[in-house]
Amino acid sequence: MTKKVALVLGVTGQDGAYLAEFLLKKNYHVIGTSRDAHANNTTNLKNLGIHHDIQMESLALLDFRSVVELLRSEKPVEVYHLAGQTSVGLSFDQPIETFESVSISTLSLLEAIRLTDLPIRFYSAGSGEVFGDTLDKPANEESRFKPRSPYGIAKASAFWCVANYREAYKMHASTGILFNHESPFRPGRFVTQKIIHGACKCARTGKGRLKLGNLDIARDWGWAPEYVEAMWKMLQLDEAQDFVIATGKTVTLEKFIDIAFSQFDLNWKDWVDLDPKFSRPTDIKFGSADPRKAERLLDWKARLHVEQVIDLMTKAALEQTDCR
Protein backbone atom coordinates (compact mmCIF):
# COMPACT_ATOMS: atom_id res chain seq x y z
CA MET A 1 0.00 0.00 0.00
CA THR A 2 1.35 3.42 -0.97
CA LYS A 3 1.89 5.67 2.03
CA LYS A 4 0.21 9.05 2.26
CA VAL A 5 2.67 11.91 1.87
CA ALA A 6 2.58 14.71 4.43
CA LEU A 7 4.64 17.88 4.11
CA VAL A 8 5.57 19.47 7.45
CA LEU A 9 6.96 22.99 7.20
CA GLY A 10 8.90 23.82 10.34
CA VAL A 11 9.53 20.16 11.12
CA THR A 12 12.51 20.83 13.40
CA GLY A 13 10.58 23.02 15.83
CA GLN A 14 8.60 21.88 18.85
CA ASP A 15 5.28 21.25 17.10
CA GLY A 16 6.86 20.09 13.86
CA ALA A 17 8.91 17.38 15.56
CA TYR A 18 5.99 16.04 17.59
CA LEU A 19 3.71 16.15 14.54
CA ALA A 20 6.26 14.27 12.43
CA GLU A 21 6.46 11.60 15.12
CA PHE A 22 2.66 11.35 15.21
CA LEU A 23 2.38 11.08 11.41
CA LEU A 24 5.07 8.43 11.19
CA LYS A 25 3.09 6.34 13.66
CA LYS A 26 0.11 6.79 11.33
CA ASN A 27 2.27 5.32 8.54
CA TYR A 28 2.71 8.55 6.56
CA HIS A 29 5.75 9.32 4.48
CA VAL A 30 6.85 12.57 6.11
CA ILE A 31 8.72 15.28 4.25
CA GLY A 32 10.12 18.05 6.40
CA THR A 33 11.48 21.37 5.24
CA SER A 34 13.88 23.99 6.47
CA ARG A 35 15.70 26.85 4.79
CA ASP A 36 18.84 24.69 4.60
CA ALA A 37 18.09 21.01 5.12
CA HIS A 38 21.77 20.13 5.40
CA ALA A 39 22.72 22.74 8.00
CA ASN A 40 19.54 22.79 10.07
CA ASN A 41 19.40 21.88 13.74
CA THR A 42 17.63 18.53 13.97
CA THR A 43 18.09 18.08 17.73
CA ASN A 44 14.37 17.63 18.41
CA LEU A 45 14.04 15.01 15.70
CA LYS A 46 17.10 13.18 17.03
CA ASN A 47 15.73 13.28 20.57
CA LEU A 48 12.59 11.56 19.29
CA GLY A 49 14.67 9.07 17.33
CA ILE A 50 13.01 9.90 14.01
CA HIS A 51 15.58 12.04 12.15
CA HIS A 52 16.44 9.17 9.79
CA ASP A 53 12.76 8.52 9.04
CA ILE A 54 12.05 11.94 7.56
CA GLN A 55 12.84 13.15 4.07
CA MET A 56 14.37 16.57 4.53
CA GLU A 57 14.13 19.22 1.82
CA SER A 58 15.43 22.78 1.64
CA LEU A 59 12.72 25.37 1.12
CA ALA A 60 12.44 29.13 1.43
CA LEU A 61 8.74 29.80 1.87
CA LEU A 62 8.91 33.24 0.28
CA ASP A 63 10.49 31.75 -2.86
CA PHE A 64 7.21 31.04 -4.61
CA ARG A 65 8.74 29.07 -7.49
CA SER A 66 10.48 26.61 -5.18
CA VAL A 67 7.25 26.09 -3.20
CA VAL A 68 5.35 25.23 -6.37
CA GLU A 69 8.10 22.90 -7.55
CA LEU A 70 8.18 21.02 -4.25
CA LEU A 71 4.41 20.54 -4.25
CA ARG A 72 4.42 19.31 -7.85
CA SER A 73 7.33 16.91 -7.35
CA GLU A 74 6.27 15.38 -4.02
CA LYS A 75 2.46 15.64 -4.34
CA PRO A 76 1.62 15.67 -0.61
CA VAL A 77 -1.96 14.99 0.40
CA GLU A 78 -1.56 17.06 3.56
CA VAL A 79 0.49 20.19 4.18
CA TYR A 80 1.11 21.47 7.71
CA HIS A 81 2.41 25.03 7.95
CA LEU A 82 4.18 25.25 11.32
CA ALA A 83 7.12 27.37 10.16
CA GLY A 84 7.80 31.01 10.93
CA GLN A 85 8.81 33.20 13.82
CA THR A 86 7.12 31.81 16.96
CA SER A 87 8.03 34.23 19.77
CA VAL A 88 5.59 36.95 20.81
CA GLY A 89 8.35 38.84 22.62
CA LEU A 90 10.74 38.69 19.68
CA SER A 91 8.04 39.98 17.34
CA PHE A 92 8.31 43.41 18.98
CA ASP A 93 11.97 43.52 17.95
CA GLN A 94 11.43 41.93 14.53
CA PRO A 95 7.92 42.90 13.39
CA ILE A 96 8.58 42.83 9.64
CA GLU A 97 10.34 39.46 9.70
CA THR A 98 7.53 38.12 11.86
CA PHE A 99 4.83 39.28 9.45
CA GLU A 100 6.66 37.90 6.43
CA SER A 101 7.44 34.53 7.99
CA VAL A 102 3.91 34.07 9.37
CA SER A 103 1.44 35.84 7.11
CA ILE A 104 3.13 36.23 3.72
CA SER A 105 4.42 32.66 3.88
CA THR A 106 0.86 31.42 4.49
CA LEU A 107 -0.39 33.36 1.48
CA SER A 108 2.46 31.97 -0.62
CA LEU A 109 1.56 28.39 0.31
CA LEU A 110 -2.14 28.87 -0.33
CA GLU A 111 -1.51 30.40 -3.74
CA ALA A 112 0.96 27.65 -4.61
CA ILE A 113 -1.59 24.98 -3.70
CA ARG A 114 -4.23 26.76 -5.77
CA LEU A 115 -1.89 27.02 -8.75
CA THR A 116 -0.88 23.35 -8.70
CA ASP A 117 -4.52 22.31 -8.39
CA LEU A 118 -3.53 19.27 -6.34
CA PRO A 119 -6.04 17.74 -3.86
CA ILE A 120 -4.05 19.01 -0.86
CA ARG A 121 -5.49 19.52 2.61
CA PHE A 122 -3.82 22.47 4.30
CA TYR A 123 -3.30 23.20 8.00
CA SER A 124 -2.15 26.60 9.22
CA ALA A 125 -0.81 27.12 12.74
CA GLY A 126 -2.85 29.89 14.31
CA SER A 127 -2.56 31.35 17.80
CA GLY A 128 -4.76 32.43 20.68
CA GLU A 129 -2.79 35.69 20.54
CA VAL A 130 -5.23 36.85 17.85
CA PHE A 131 -7.93 37.39 20.48
CA GLY A 132 -5.94 39.71 22.73
CA ASP A 133 -7.42 40.02 26.20
CA THR A 134 -10.37 37.65 26.59
CA LEU A 135 -11.34 39.21 29.95
CA ASP A 136 -14.11 37.16 31.60
CA LYS A 137 -15.36 35.41 28.44
CA PRO A 138 -13.29 32.50 27.07
CA ALA A 139 -12.54 32.86 23.36
CA ASN A 140 -14.13 30.49 20.87
CA GLU A 141 -14.21 30.30 17.08
CA GLU A 142 -16.71 33.17 16.87
CA SER A 143 -14.86 35.60 19.16
CA ARG A 144 -13.56 38.85 17.71
CA PHE A 145 -9.87 39.42 17.08
CA LYS A 146 -7.97 42.15 18.91
CA PRO A 147 -4.27 41.22 18.82
CA ARG A 148 -1.82 43.12 20.99
CA SER A 149 1.52 42.19 19.40
CA PRO A 150 3.09 42.06 15.93
CA TYR A 151 2.98 38.28 16.28
CA GLY A 152 -0.76 38.32 16.99
CA ILE A 153 -1.35 40.68 14.06
CA ALA A 154 0.57 38.38 11.72
CA LYS A 155 -1.39 35.34 12.90
CA ALA A 156 -4.67 37.20 12.44
CA SER A 157 -3.71 38.10 8.88
CA ALA A 158 -2.75 34.49 8.13
CA PHE A 159 -6.08 33.30 9.56
CA TRP A 160 -8.05 35.49 7.16
CA CYS A 161 -5.91 34.38 4.23
CA VAL A 162 -6.84 30.77 4.99
CA ALA A 163 -10.51 31.63 5.45
CA ASN A 164 -10.60 33.51 2.15
CA TYR A 165 -8.97 30.74 0.11
CA ARG A 166 -11.30 28.19 1.69
CA GLU A 167 -14.32 30.23 0.70
CA ALA A 168 -13.18 31.61 -2.66
CA TYR A 169 -11.42 28.54 -4.06
CA LYS A 170 -13.14 25.75 -2.10
CA MET A 171 -9.82 24.61 -0.67
CA HIS A 172 -9.66 22.23 2.28
CA ALA A 173 -7.78 24.73 4.45
CA SER A 174 -8.05 25.06 8.22
CA THR A 175 -6.49 27.11 10.99
CA GLY A 176 -5.85 25.65 14.40
CA ILE A 177 -6.09 28.53 16.87
CA LEU A 178 -3.77 27.05 19.46
CA PHE A 179 -3.35 28.55 22.88
CA ASN A 180 -0.05 28.14 24.73
CA HIS A 181 1.32 24.62 24.58
CA GLU A 182 4.63 23.58 26.09
CA SER A 183 7.16 20.76 26.17
CA PRO A 184 10.86 20.19 26.82
CA PHE A 185 11.43 21.25 23.20
CA ARG A 186 10.52 24.85 23.96
CA PRO A 187 13.52 27.16 23.31
CA GLY A 188 15.04 28.79 26.38
CA ARG A 189 13.78 32.25 25.40
CA PHE A 190 10.20 31.20 26.20
CA VAL A 191 9.19 32.17 29.73
CA THR A 192 7.92 28.69 30.65
CA GLN A 193 11.25 27.07 29.85
CA LYS A 194 13.08 29.92 31.54
CA ILE A 195 11.09 29.30 34.73
CA ILE A 196 11.54 25.52 34.70
CA HIS A 197 15.29 25.68 34.17
CA GLY A 198 15.62 28.62 36.57
CA ALA A 199 13.92 26.69 39.36
CA CYS A 200 16.05 23.64 38.59
CA LYS A 201 19.27 25.67 38.71
CA CYS A 202 18.31 27.38 41.98
CA ALA A 203 17.61 24.01 43.56
CA ARG A 204 20.82 22.45 42.31
CA THR A 205 23.20 25.28 43.12
CA GLY A 206 21.45 26.93 46.06
CA LYS A 207 22.15 30.31 44.55
CA GLY A 208 21.19 32.61 41.69
CA ARG A 209 18.18 34.79 40.91
CA LEU A 210 15.49 34.40 38.26
CA LYS A 211 14.47 37.70 36.68
CA LEU A 212 11.00 37.96 35.18
CA GLY A 213 8.55 40.60 34.00
CA ASN A 214 4.82 40.84 34.70
CA LEU A 215 3.60 37.93 36.84
CA ASP A 216 -0.08 38.92 36.73
CA ILE A 217 -0.68 37.69 33.20
CA ALA A 218 -2.78 34.53 32.86
CA ARG A 219 -2.65 31.89 30.14
CA ASP A 220 -4.05 28.51 29.14
CA TRP A 221 -1.04 26.15 29.08
CA GLY A 222 -1.27 22.69 27.52
CA TRP A 223 0.99 19.84 26.45
CA ALA A 224 2.34 20.18 22.90
CA PRO A 225 2.41 16.45 21.96
CA GLU A 226 -1.36 16.34 22.51
CA TYR A 227 -2.03 19.38 20.34
CA VAL A 228 -0.49 17.90 17.19
CA GLU A 229 -3.15 15.20 17.21
CA ALA A 230 -5.76 17.94 16.93
CA MET A 231 -3.96 19.33 13.87
CA TRP A 232 -4.18 15.97 12.14
CA LYS A 233 -7.82 15.48 13.12
CA MET A 234 -8.74 18.79 11.46
CA LEU A 235 -7.50 17.56 8.11
CA GLN A 236 -9.49 14.32 8.39
CA LEU A 237 -12.83 16.19 8.36
CA ASP A 238 -14.87 16.14 5.18
CA GLU A 239 -15.38 19.90 5.47
CA ALA A 240 -12.55 22.21 6.49
CA GLN A 241 -13.16 24.28 9.62
CA ASP A 242 -11.20 26.34 12.13
CA PHE A 243 -10.82 25.24 15.73
CA VAL A 244 -9.70 26.67 19.06
CA ILE A 245 -7.33 24.18 20.70
CA ALA A 246 -6.70 24.60 24.42
CA THR A 247 -7.22 22.97 27.81
CA GLY A 248 -9.98 25.34 28.92
CA LYS A 249 -8.09 26.08 32.14
CA THR A 250 -6.31 29.41 32.71
CA VAL A 251 -3.80 30.19 35.46
CA THR A 252 -1.58 33.18 36.20
CA LEU A 253 2.12 33.21 35.51
CA GLU A 254 2.64 33.58 39.24
CA LYS A 255 0.80 30.31 39.76
CA PHE A 256 2.93 28.65 37.09
CA ILE A 257 6.06 29.84 38.91
CA ASP A 258 4.73 28.65 42.25
CA ILE A 259 4.04 25.16 40.91
CA ALA A 260 7.45 24.98 39.23
CA PHE A 261 9.42 25.97 42.33
CA SER A 262 7.27 23.73 44.51
CA GLN A 263 8.63 20.81 42.50
CA PHE A 264 11.89 21.46 44.35
CA ASP A 265 10.33 22.40 47.71
CA LEU A 266 11.31 26.04 47.12
CA ASN A 267 9.36 29.23 47.80
CA TRP A 268 9.57 31.13 44.55
CA LYS A 269 9.48 34.48 46.33
CA ASP A 270 12.96 33.74 47.68
CA TRP A 271 14.40 33.30 44.20
CA VAL A 272 12.52 35.56 41.75
CA ASP A 273 13.11 39.24 41.03
CA LEU A 274 10.84 41.44 38.94
CA ASP A 275 12.59 43.36 36.19
CA PRO A 276 10.61 45.79 33.98
CA LYS A 277 12.91 45.17 31.02
CA PHE A 278 11.31 41.74 30.61
CA SER A 279 7.84 43.26 30.20
CA ARG A 280 6.46 43.74 26.69
CA PRO A 281 5.27 47.08 25.26
CA THR A 282 1.75 45.64 25.15
CA ASP A 283 0.67 42.30 26.51
CA ILE A 284 -2.37 40.14 27.02
CA LYS A 285 -3.35 40.22 30.67
CA PHE A 286 -5.83 37.35 30.55
CA GLY A 287 -6.09 34.70 27.84
CA SER A 288 -8.75 32.02 28.22
CA ALA A 289 -10.25 29.60 25.73
CA ASP A 290 -13.38 27.59 25.04
CA PRO A 291 -12.28 24.41 23.18
CA ARG A 292 -15.69 22.70 23.20
CA LYS A 293 -16.05 22.71 19.42
CA ALA A 294 -12.89 20.59 19.12
CA GLU A 295 -14.24 18.19 21.73
CA ARG A 296 -17.55 17.93 19.89
CA LEU A 297 -16.42 17.67 16.26
CA LEU A 298 -12.86 16.35 16.52
CA ASP A 299 -13.35 14.13 19.54
CA TRP A 300 -10.29 15.87 20.97
CA LYS A 301 -9.83 17.02 24.54
CA ALA A 302 -6.68 17.93 26.44
CA ARG A 303 -5.75 15.23 28.92
CA LEU A 304 -2.88 17.08 30.60
CA HIS A 305 -3.21 20.44 32.33
CA VAL A 306 -0.68 22.91 33.67
CA GLU A 307 0.32 20.86 36.72
CA GLN A 308 1.15 17.80 34.63
CA VAL A 309 2.86 19.93 31.97
CA ILE A 310 5.17 21.49 34.57
CA ASP A 311 5.91 18.09 36.09
CA LEU A 312 6.92 16.62 32.72
CA MET A 313 9.04 19.65 31.80
CA THR A 314 10.75 19.53 35.20
CA LYS A 315 11.63 15.86 34.80
CA ALA A 316 13.12 16.61 31.39
CA ALA A 317 15.15 19.50 32.82
CA LEU A 318 16.54 17.30 35.57
CA GLU A 319 17.90 14.93 32.95
CA GLN A 320 20.10 17.72 31.63
CA THR A 321 23.25 17.92 33.70
CA ASP A 322 23.73 21.65 33.24
CA CYS A 323 20.03 22.39 33.88
CA ARG A 324 20.51 25.62 31.98
Rank of each mutant, 00 (worst) to 15 (best):
A199L: 07
A240C: 03
D299F: 14
A199V: 04
T282G: 08
Q236T: 15
V228S: 08
P225E: 13
R292V: 11
K233W: 02
R219G: 09
A246R: 00
L253C: 01
M231Y: 13
R219E: 03
G222S: 12
I257M: 02
I245S: 04
G206V: 06
E226R: 12
L237Q: 08
N267G: 14
C200Y: 03
L297K: 06
T250C: 07
R296S: 10
W223Q: 11
R204N: 08
P276L: 07
F278E: 13
N267C: 11
L298C: 13
A246N: 05
S288C: 13
K211R: 12
K255G: 06
D270I: 12
H197E: 13
K285G: 04
P276Q: 07
D238R: 14
K201M: 08
A240S: 15
I195E: 00
L274E: 09
N267Y: 05
W271N: 03
L210Y: 06
P291V: 11
R292C: 05
G206P: 02
A246T: 08
Q236L: 10
L235D: 09
I217K: 07
A294S: 04
I257A: 03
A224R: 02
D220A: 15
I195R: 00
D242H: 12
S279A: 07
K194T: 07
W223S: 11
K293V: 06
E229A: 12
Q236P: 01
A289L: 05
G248E: 13
R280D: 08
G198S: 11
